[in-house]
Amino acid sequence: MKITDIVEALDLKVVSGHGGLMNDVTGGYVSDMLSDVIGNAGEGSVWITLQTHHNILAVASLKDISAIIIVKGGIPEEETAKKSNEENIPLLSTDKDTFTIAGQLYDLIKKE
């Protein structure tokens, strides 16, 4: 499964990092504590968070995250979007909350 499939199925808005839309998806991770993500997120995961600080891109790059979904209509800082373009890690946005979008992503990945 590619990021672009997820964008379509979950009706996500691509904020930045369009160059990474063909990244492969191997799983998902949900956390708002970056120290936890650094310790535990798996390579190729789609990461769901409400954080918008630009450190999320550095963490995503470090952990080879395939894309970040920002929940509840959060708007990433300019610096965050810039880094997402540089790193080809898409920033995806949804108005849904973490519980809802995580459930939908789980179903989608499980079906595959």
Partner: peptide, 16 residues
């Protein structure tokens, strides 16, 4: 501290 600190919440010191 691993609660309410830059390191716990943001992983590391932001570069700026």
């Amino acid at each position: 501290r691993m609660k309410n600190s830059i390191y716990s919440q943001l992983g590391f010191l932001p570069e700026n």
